[in-house]
């Protein structure tokens, strides 16, 4: 669809300017204009200690903050995307995959681990937005589906932490099918009475929002995260009007009944633990 990913480039650029913790010792917070020590923000999980502005945070750093100790185990880390359509615009898809892998982080846009939150064992999938804008192709869909199936098999809750521009255009129809595949796995989890918690972070749009990200028993958002189906620019072009203030931000979705709760990053682990313990009593 013409709006999947459409806003990606724009959002990446504009948010990158203001929302990543800048290099260097001192930085001016875009939320409150205070001058802060970069290390101070970093120690606070990339949240401004003064005003609570949420900078983006690396996927692995978030996992470290969320899970108990070093007890987690990663699954399917080696699966990589393949350019089966020989998709080419300015660069070929294969070149884009290679460039993203060469950055040395993840081999695709999602990391799947088994870990524990205050002793509750969970299956967690977390998007790595730095890998092609967190876009979902076969690998992302497959790893998330396996993660949900592991949750089903081990009778554990599943958690997905989304940050994605949506479906990956370079895999065309098969990216689209990942929406159906992952949602079908969630149907099984629901039937088995196991919790699924969706955590929506900045930004979550397109095919990811329109599949598992909106299907949580609880949908939890981070403050001010951009969450939507169509990108803001596509909507503006369609309706030829300016969008209302705060449109598609977490608070707007809360007001419209689409998310259950907004939880600041610094409170996420404690809150999640409390919720999980109420929803799920693990088999002994």
């Amino acid at each position: 669809m013409s709006w999947f990913n459409k806003e990606k480039a724009g959002i990446e650029k504009s948010v990158a300017k203001k929302s990543r913790v800048p290099e260097g010792m001192w930085t001016k917070c875009p939320g409150c204009s205070e001058t802060l020590l970069a290390t101070e923000i970093d120690a606070n999980l990339n949240v401004c200690p003064k005003c609570g502005h949420h900078y983006r945070i690396a996927a692995r750093r978030r996992l470290e903050a969320l899970l108990d100790g070093a007890t987690w185990q990663e699954f399917d880390a080696g699966i990589t995307s393949v350019d089966f359509l020989e998709f080419k615009d300015a660069k070929s898809y294969q070149e884009r995959i290679n460039a993203a892998v060469a950055k040395g982080g993840s081999k695709d846009a999602v990391i799947c681990v088994q870990g524990a939150i205050e002793g509750v064992n969970v299956q967690v999938s977390i998007f790595d937005f730095s890998f092609m804008g967190g876009s979902m192709g076969s690998v992302v869909g497959e790893k998330i589906t396996r993660s949900i199936e592991r949750a089903l098999h081990l009778r554990q809750p599943a958690i997905i932490i989304s940050a994605s521009g949506g479906a990956r255009m370079q895999e065309s129809i098969l990216s689209l099918m990942q929406m159906a595949k992952t949602s079908a796995a969630l149907a099984k989890l629901k039937e088995a009475g196991l919790p699924f918690i969706s955590i929506l972070t900045d930004p979550t749009t397109g095919g990811v929002t329109a599949s598992f990200a909106m299907l949580g028993d609880l949908n939890i958002a981070e403050p001010k995260a951009l969450i939507g189906f169509a990108g803001p620019r596509v909507i503006e072009q369609t309706i030829r009007q300016k969008l209302p203030e705060g449109f598609q931000r977490a608070e707007y979705l809360l007001d419209h009944g689409m998310v259950d709760i907004i939880i600041p990053r610094t409170e996420m682990r404690a809150k999640l633990a409390s919720i999980l313990k109420m929803l799920h009593s693990p088999a002994i």
């Binding site: 949602s183 329109a210 599949s211 909106m214 596509v234 369609t238 309706i239």
Partner: peptide, 21 residues
């Protein structure tokens, strides 16, 4: 699916996602 303000407000993404599941 229609990309409009009302569609977003009333949960376009949720409606699609629910149908898939």
């Amino acid at each position: 699916a229609y990309p409009g303000i009302g569609a977003e407000e009333r949960g376009q993404a949720e409606a699609i996602a629910r149908n898939l599941r």
